[in-house]
Amino acid sequence: MIRYWEKIYAKSENIKAYALLFPALLMVILAMASPMLLTFVTSFHTQVSMMEIDTTLTLGRYKDFFSKPVYTTLLGRSIKISFFVTLVTLITTYPLAYYIAFYVKKNKMLWIVLMTLPFWTSYLLRVFSWKVILGHKGVVNSALMALGMIEEPLGFLIYSQTAVVLTLAHAWAAFAILPLYVSLDKIDKSLLEASYDLGNSKFQTFWRVTFPLSLPGVIGAILIIFIPTVGDYVTPQLVGGTDGRMLSNMIQALFGRANNFPLGAASAVIMLFSVSLVALIVTYVTRKVSMRMS
């Protein structure tokens, strides 16, 4: 019997491949697919009391989500904050990636390592450093008070949406620099020379040649930053205050203190779909724009 199986195993390449794949496949199913599926199914259930969950399928939780203004507001705010974070990060990092790609001649790698150094320290500690700077007794406030410029700490510095945007933009800068740099570095320099020869100015060359060619990197950076920041949980929790709270904080509360698993699962599913939708729109629009430009 065993020999029979051995024969089949030795003969068929496909079975061999699947046998090699089996551990990975099992892990994917165990760690990835089934939890997601379960969350999806849970979102159609109803929480009856503390411990009990009614498992009849219903769309009630989705109705709950869209009928209570809290949830839609938080969803809108999450998307808005992520949008601003993406915008700020792109605007601040693009010139730098441009500089490293076109102006730095020696030691490009050293520059890249230098730019990504903050990324290697813990993300939480970067958030903490902003709290040290912006806090009520933080460096900015205490310095201004010591100089006698203000009487009371400036309240708007921390625990606001601005603080969340600033902290996130700082934390995700490295993730934007890498794709931007790669796409800019790949550009054939002779194309730029051709553009100059044809009488374009520096700015025109940038706008007509360099920028369209770097669009893949821009799309990559947008997706890399936008998707995780919508679901970000710790930054709004630490520097957001009540005003900067985002949807993930609500989801966490629903699974924790509020103890409404189905509604939490429904919010998670809705968040997932809206993130995917926005990502698709971004990709589609940029592709359209780049087609028109070239």
């Binding site: 760690a31 989801i251 699974f255 939490g264």
Partner: peptide, 21 residues
């Protein structure tokens, strides 16, 4: 590459819910 697109919060919660079951 799907798992990267999922917000980390959801991955954590789903894992807990599944293994609790």
């Amino acid at each position: 590459i799907m798992p990267v697109l999922f917000p980390g919060v959801i991955i954590g919660i789903s894992t807990v819910v599944l293994w609790d079951r």
